[in-house]
Design a protein around this nucleic acid. Structure first.
Lengths: 69, 69
DNA sequence: GCCATAAGTGCATTATAATGCACTTACACT
DNA sequence: AGTGTAAGTGCATTATAATGCACTTATGGC
């Protein structure tokens, strides 16, 4: 379901050479929570997502859906 | 905290001339949940956010933060 | 092989999102 | 003022996200 967003988190984290432990600590999110998230399990709250995004230099946005073909 | 995203939901809904009740029903989300969300209270799950976004023709995205000045 | 470091998992607990119900505004329109 | 429709709110319950702990894999040096 949310694999895409979770995948982005994961990719971005390793791009920045952060361990799960470091990212979790920096974002103020439980390690267990981040692990679950990256494993594609779970349904994070917007809050959790934004905390992680923040550390990763990302932002959560709502945009008009585009038709891609 | 999430006022921005919630505001977008709200604006988009009225732009589409949907009542809270209709949007909630279409999205498969509880009316109480949507009301709280639009009131700026609450911390919706990604799931909830995506269901609403879907009906509204929006999508949740994670993008590299841009410096706006 | 052994060791260290990072990542993944099962379980139990706590915090809180999601929900329904009943009630209260707020805002037209007549 | 009365009526109807949409929106906001308090409360209680249920579902589930968030968390820590202990343990199990990978993975990469030495």
């Amino acid at each position: 379901m949310h694999q895409e967003l979770c995948q982005i988190i994961k990719e971005r984290r390793s791009m920045l050479r952060l361990t799960q432990e470091d990212l979790a600590a920096l974002a103020g999110v439980g390690l267990r929570t981040l692990k679950a998230l990256e494993a594609g399990k779970g349904n994070p709250s917007l809050d959790t997502l934004q905390k992680l995004a923040d550390v990763l230099g990302l932002e959560v946005r709502l945009e008009v859906k585009r038709i891609d073909r």
